[in-house]
Amino acid sequence: MSTVKLTVNGRAVSVDVEDRTLLVHLLRENLNLTGTHVGCDTSQCGACVVHVDGRAVKSCTMLAGQAAGSNVTTIEGLAKGGELHPMQAAFRDNHGLQCGYCTPGMIMSAVDIVHRHGGKLDEETVRHELEGNICRCTGYHNIVKAVLDAAGRMKVAQAAE
């Protein structure tokens, strides 16, 4: 057992967990942040993607201890003050989700994709960049549309800041 201290969605937390605890389990079981999901056991599906120190990583492939001292953002921390993040809004407006299970990881990865590529995204790049996130419902068609749409919205939002 170890005490792991980290910041989650802007809040400092301290949690006692077994050393074998994965970050995703710390989030789901200890902090009740159940928006982050587990869809596989081979680190491929991406349902568990969160941001650790600004980078989109698979929280099922990281020990809680590895995240000690880090800043973690989960899907629950993305909307600011009740206002949807442009990526969340774009997923809704473009019907980029059906069952919703892969959606949190998909959105967290997508935000990271836009951060890395800025407004220079095209369909091919988005499809390639989504290779670490599996969706069984949408055929990705509307997810790709949503990411491209959000890239535009995020550019506008950034310009406004």
């Binding site: 050393d19 074998r20 994965l22 081979t42 680190s43 099922c60 492939t61 990281m62 020990l63 201890g65």
Partner: peptide, 25 residues
């Protein structure tokens, strides 16, 4: 343990059982 992108999946499958993991990252 470096990035853990191979070791942790293997440990999750219980195919490796290290007594100690030393994080180099």
């Amino acid at each position: 343990l470096a990035g853990g992108q191979t070791l942790l999946p293997v440990m999750k499958q219980r195919l490796a059982a290290p007594s100690d993991v030393i994080d180099l990252s």
